[in-house]
């Protein structure tokens, strides 16, 4: 069995695709669904650039095979904004210069998306710990931490999100 057919939901949209069993989730998203916002920075689970949300939890998409995602609900960076309205975390990154080259950014956004749901009022230390599995080579993290805190405030004042 070198191939399998899977059905899953990505960014609210159902897909059915036949994939080679060895294809990683990251490559599946990028190649089969053309969702290239999920980036590959190391392909061995260290850099966090490929982080996506699977059934509500942030995971490394380079360390999963697409065939394992049968029935899963996945959120990628492409699904974060509501049309032209950026998600508050995206807004905060923009406002506070939390990105430079932008390559690692999708992974940070999705990591924080999960983190802020679970920890709506984080301390700076908690934010640093939460993003410690995501590498950024441009910003020195300083503005990412500031953006995360600002996003937490925005989300708290906006009330619970779906």
């Amino acid at each position: 069995m070198k191939e399998r057919t899977i059905r899953l939901t990505v960014n609210g949209r159902p897909y059915e695709r036949t994939v080679e069993v060895r294809k990683t989730l990251a490559d599946f998203l990028r190649e089969d669904l053309d969702l290239t916002g999920t980036h590959l920075g190391c392909e061995h689970g260290v850099c966090g650039a490929c982080t996506v949300v699977v059934n509500g939890e942030a995971v490394r998409s380079c360390l999963l095979f697409a065939v394992q995602l049968e029935g899963a609900n996945i959120l990628t960076v492409e699904g974060l904004a509501d049309g032209d309205n950026l998600h508050p975390i995206q807004e905060a990154f923009w406002e506070h210069h939390g990105l430079q080259c932008g390559f690692c950014t999708p992974g940070f956004l999705l990591t924080l998306y999960c983190f802020l749901k679970e920890t709506p009022r984080p301390s700076e230390a908690e934010i640093r710990e939460a993003i410690s599995g995501n590498l950024c080579r441009c910003t020195g993290y300083h503005n990412i931490v500031i953006a995360a805190r600002a996003a937490a405030e925005k989300l708290a004042s906006a009330g619970p999100t779906p």
């Binding site: 942030a58 995971v59 490394r60 990591t111 999960c114």
Partner: peptide, 12 residues
Amino acid sequence: MPQIGHVQIRNR
């Protein structure tokens, strides 16, 4: 537990 890898690793 929190010292094992990072949250994305422990989620899986």
